[in-house]
């Protein structure tokens, strides 16, 4: 099982079981995970993005280099963001980056996004976009962050055909972004995880809307209980091939070198 959506370190508003990297690795391995693609909670609010990425890379390397795959952060509204992208690739040897447009104050319609995508594609870096971290209704009142609007993505994806793009934490309970995601699904080259999918038939519907090869296992652990993603797979009643693709196969296709 490959978990494409975990975060290391501390969520700013609550201590979480598994917010210590060693403990996170232990718990995920105990649950049958063989590889975890990890971002850093620090990336949400810290301005020293280079320091965030360096700590993330060190932690992954220190705690379990074959298990934790670091996804550094780039904030394209910060000065010299191409420098952060370059370091992710050349210094830390990362396979991808993780973006948080809503926490970093830009929309996907911002021209800088297409620029960032082109540069990432040129370096063969995967781009993960986190649509939302937390239900808007339960956020800290002084720190309210609406979900990302995916509507502009379809056009950008057409312009950067070599980009490996993965959507994390899309969908969710009230799914305002579902129309934009549906359009993206039709593009055929965009992938997504299923950590926030809700509704009794939600996961099966997501797989139908994208395709069995475009949906990957992701838990949003440790923010969410890991078992939520696991039980969604069990509840979906997928055939063995589809389940294997979801749990691991599709992620392996995206990062074959791992």
């Amino acid at each position: 099982m490959i978990d494409t959506n975990v975060h290391l370190f501390h969520w700013p508003f609550r201590r979480l079981a598994g917010d210590d990297p060693a403990e996170l690795v232990r718990r995920l391995k105990e649950k049958g995970v063989r590889q975890a693609w990890a971002g850093s909670f620090e990336a949400l609010l810290c301005r020293d993005v280079a320091g965030v990425n360096s700590r993330l890379a060190d932690a992954c390397s220190h705690h379990c280099p074959d298990f934790l795959v670091p996804f550094g952060c780039v904030n394209p509204k910060f000065p010299d963001w191409p420098g952060d992208l370059r370091r992710c690739h050349e210094v830390h040897r990362m396979r991808g980056i993780r973006l948080y447009p809503n926490y970093h104050g830009y929309t996907l319609a911002d021209p800088v996004v297409a620029d960032l995508f082109s540069r990432a594609a040129a370096r063969r870096l995967m781009v993960q976009i986190v649509f939302c971290m937390e239900d808007e209704r339960t956020q800290f009142p002084l720190m309210r962050v609406p979900p990302v609007d995916p509507a502009p993505l379809a056009e950008i994806v057409r312009r950067v055909p070599d980009l490996k793009l993965v959507l994390l934490n899309g969908g969710g309970w009230d799914g305002d972004e579902s129309r934009g995601l549906r359009e993206l699904a039709r593009e055929g080259r965009v992938y997504c995880d299923m950590a926030r999918v809700e509704g009794i038939e939600g996961l099966a519907d997501l797989i139908r809307s994208f395709s069995p090869t475009q949906v990957m296992f992701g838990s949003s652990y440790p923010f969410f209980y890991f078992e939520a993603a696991l039980l969604k797979v069990k509840s979906a009643g997928l055939a063995q091939d589809g389940r294997a693709a979801l749990l691991e196969g599709n992620a392996r296709v995206l990062l074959p070198e791992l």
């Binding site: 649950k31 049958g32 899309g170 969908g171 969710g172 309970w173 009230d174 799914g175 579902s178 995601l181 549906r182 999918v197 809700e198 509704g199 038939e201 939600g202 519907d205 997501l206 809307s209 078992e227 696991l230």
Partner: peptide
């Protein structure tokens, strides 16, 4: 609700 989509 995400009807028809994003509906151990």
């Amino acid at each position: 609700i995400l009807k028809g989509f994003v509906s151990g």
